[in-house]
């Protein structure tokens, strides 16, 4: 097969559109890292679990897809609070490995629950109605309607989160806790409440990402958990730990990069190049694209 420049650009376009899911997950990781300077390894698992619950509840009550896209994020948020309580709230913050290991445990637990409940087989996720059929041609390049939908919903969600962080009382408190926790406490802010809210919001974003990923792929399966965890983390690191803007841009670029190497090197080798990209960043630009160099004492 001969790869033309049109193919290359087309695959990058598809990848960037799908990359908005990585961006969402990256923003979720970043929100939690910003709040506690800790990684929540169970994050992508709870996102997929949220999407499963949304799908399941809608199926049982025979509600439509719109409700799934509402319930998925909601349950994702609730699982987020649960993970916070189990893995973060009561483990002393100076125990850096404690919460990390606990959240890895939660990742496996959630994964196991999904596998047991579904007998390990993937479920069909409803297509996005008119969006699935739509296909826009711009010159020689095509834009898949469902991926456009994914991008728009992701961008709307991420914009809302940024507005919440910079325009609301919760956002003020969350930024205060993230930058200087003791001073925030002295101003009367309860950091546990703020962190629980942050885990909820991150969980909502994750549940949304889970639904979008499942809708774009057409099925939902526990096999989505590992790639979302890894690629969300890579987006977080490449963007610069703690930078929301960085996670968004890195997520989109990562999608494009991955799709390009899928085209050029095939599905078996694709992830090797993704990890190579991570490796290059860790060696040459360990603070990522927008990493903060301000020292937080």
């Amino acid at each position: 097969m001969v790869i033309t420049s049109v193919d290359v650009i087309q695959s990058i376009i598809d990848g960037i559109l799908y990359g908005s899911i990585y961006a969402l997950i990256g923003v979720g990781f970043t929100l939690i890292f910003g709040a506690m300077q800790k990684l929540n390894m169970a994050y992508a698992a709870s996102s997929i679990a949220g999407a499963y619950c949304g799908l399941g509840i809608s199926a049982v009550l025979s509600l439509n897809l719109l409700v799934t896209f509402f319930l998925g994020p909601l349950v994702g948020g609730l699982i987020g609070i649960l993970v916070y309580l189990v893995c973060f709230r009561f483990i002393p913050s100076r125990e850096h490995l404690g919460s990390l290991m606990a959240s890895i445990g939660a990742l496996f637990l959630i994964d196991e629950i999904i596998v047991h409940e579904t007998d390990g087989s993937p479920l069909n996720f409803p297509e996005l109605g008119i969006f699935s059929e739509a296909y826009f041609l711009v010159g020689e390049f095509g834009f898949r309607g469902d991926l456009i939908f994914v991008l728009i919903v992701s961008l709307l969600a991420m914009t809302s989160i940024i507005l919440m962080l910079y325009r609301t009382k919760y956002g003020l408190a969350a930024r205060a806790v993230s930058q200087q926790m003791n001073a925030a406490i002295l101003c009367g802010i309860n950091p546990h409440k703020v962190n629980a809210s942050t885990f909820f919001l991150a969980g909502v974003l994750g549940g949304l990402a889970g639904c979008l990923a499942a809708a774009a792929v057409g099925v939902i399966s526990p096999l989505l958990i590992l790639p979302l965890t890894i690629k969300g983390l890579i987006a977080t690191v490449i963007g610069g730990l703690g930078s929301i803007k960085g996670a968004i841009i890195a997520g989109l670029l990562l999608g494009g990069f991955e799709s390009l190497f899928l085209l050029v090197r095939g599905v078996n080798e694709r992830d090797i190049y993704v990890f190579l990209l991570l490796f290059l960043f860790l060696v040459f630009k360990p603070n990522g694209m927008f990493g903060s160099i301000i020292d937080r004492d």
Partner: peptide
Amino acid sequence: ALVPENRLIFPEMTVRENLIVGAYL
């Protein structure tokens, strides 16, 4: 109210925002 040792101001907030957090409650 406590003015803490080493001041502990919020480094990535503006002066005005720092004051607003002071009035949080």
